[in-house]
Nucleic acid binder design. Structure first.
Length: 218
DNA sequence: GCGACAG
DNA sequence: ATCTTGTCGC
């Protein structure tokens, strides 16, 4: 899981968009992973310009915390819808570098291919690490969908303007708002939905994300 | 031109 | 994301 230097990070928003368009075709939307025994959650907490990057690794499917890493560093890129990865990946890579355990799968707090250029945070990090990733966002960035049934496990596909499927609005908990699941890299949408639901035994968000989020924002 | 817009 | 109190619902 060695990070691959696909590009530099001192980019202007215009250059960042060019990078996304250049890398988007390398994303693998099919299953390309082995047995899942551990799943990692990654998240960033930001206070002013100081970012706290956290990676939490849980056993799967038991979902017990087995490893965690925390790194505090300065953020270098502003938050711009569609360019979130350029703000969050540098700090997250530092946290992954400090991690002792190599997780079999990573679930990100953001979108994968459910993105205006089909290259959200989960796809970008997946490509850099060449590792299986899933995007699981709390709100929609791009695409249209219809509300799924209110029962846990229900979901409806997210479509782009040409009706291509780019993700799914998934009810991970009954009577609660949906989360948006999409392929990050090397995980099909079907597997992404199945694995995400398996990581949500009680709450709307995956346990992985909850663990990372808790440490990152306190 | 107006609205939408992951975290 | 962060700034912030109480409040509605399971």
């Amino acid at each position: 899981m060695r990070p691959c230097q696909l590009h530099t990070w001192d980019l202007s928003p215009t250059e960042a968009i060019a990078v996304q368009l250049q890398l988007r075709d390398q994303v693998i939307r099919c299953d390309d992973f082995g047995e899942i025994k551990t799943v990692a959650g990654a998240d960033l907490g930001i206070r002013g310009s100081l970012a706290t990057a956290v990676i939490s690794v849980l056993s799967y499917p038991s979902l017990v915390l087995v490893d965690q890493s925390v790194v505090k560093t300065a953020v270098q890129f502003p938050y711009i819808p569609g360019l979130l990865s350029f703000r969050e990946i540098p700090p997250l890579l530092q946290a992954f570098d400090q991690l002792q355990t190599i997780p079999d799968l990573i679930i990100l707090d953001g979108h994968g291919v459910a993105h205006p250029r089909r290259f959200g945070l989960a796809s970008h990090l997946g490509l850099i690490l060449d590792w299986p990733t899933i995007g699981c966002a709390k709100s929609r960035l791009f695409g249209t969908y219809q509300e799924p049934e209110l029962e846990k496990g229900s979901y409806r596909f997210l479509h782009d303007r040409d009706q291509n499927v780019i993700g799914a609005a998934v009810r991970t908990r009954s009577q609660t708002k949906v989360v948006f699941v999409s392929t990050g890299h090397r995980v099909s949408l079907d597997s992404a939905v199945r694995l995400t639901l398996a990581c949500c035994p009680r709450y709307k968000l995956p346990e992985t994300t909850r663990y990372a989020h808790r440490l990152a924002s306190n």
